[in-house]
Simulated scan of single mutants.
Amino acid sequence: MKNIVILISGTGSNMAAIVQAAEKDSWEKSLGVRVAAVISNKQNASGLSWLHANTNSSKIHTEVLEHTQFATREAFDAALMSRIDEHAPDLVVLAGFMRILTPAFVTHYAGRLINIHPSLLPAFAGLNTHQRAIDAGCKFAGATVHQVTSELDHGQILAQAVVPVLQGDTAEALAARVLTQEHLIYPAAVAAFFKP
């Protein structure tokens, strides 16, 4: 059985989409893959509550490793790698994990670390992507699943989804439309990672 470890910081809606797809599409039988663990860097991440309320949570290990308990980014990442590696991950999925990762972390999981970003990369790497797309007069926005490299929001593109930017759009309205697409392409990209 191949293992997925998902990292979250908040609502974990993309994590939930992946967990639901894994159950609905029987990834354990069809792909030999399971979500082994979900780890959050925040105690109050509501994604953990969702997981306990909506799944057979005994099958998915959950854990909190607070980054604020560590003196340096390097110390936190080293501790996080140790926790992740307990689950022998074939894939580590960043699902709203709001931390910039150290080069050592990225190198350790090279080729098996993916992220989703709310823009059509390479456009609008970084933060405030929806407002920046509106301000730039873009006709389209979207989301990108990509391999993680040491350069922020770069790496091989695995999947993208496009949504229109509508007249009078707000960043919040655009974000909501993009998020519905994230919930479709991220589970599909995770499944595709394991298909021969």
Rank of each mutant, 00 (worst) to 15 (best):
T180C: 05
V35A: 03
M15P: 00
I134A: 08
T102F: 07
A75G: 08
N56E: 04
P196R: 12
N41P: 01
T11S: 15
I100C: 01
L65K: 09
A188V: 11
D90F: 11
A36M: 06
C138S: 14
M15Q: 03
S58T: 15
M1N: 08
H108D: 12
L158P: 01
I185T: 00
I84E: 04
G142T: 08
I4R: 01
I100H: 07
H130P: 02
I116P: 01
A36L: 07
S119A: 13
V35M: 04
L94S: 02
H67L: 11
S119P: 03
S46P: 05
R34F: 12
I4F: 05
L179G: 07
N41Y: 02
V106P: 07
T107Q: 15
Y186R: 10
T180W: 05
I185D: 02
V33E: 13
S9L: 12
V19T: 03
P118K: 10
K24C: 15
A192S: 09
A110Q: 13
N115G: 09
H117W: 00
G142R: 03
V33Y: 10
K42M: 13
T149L: 00
L113M: 15
T102G: 03
F124H: 12
I18K: 03
E66H: 09
A189R: 06
K59L: 12
R73F: 12
F70T: 14
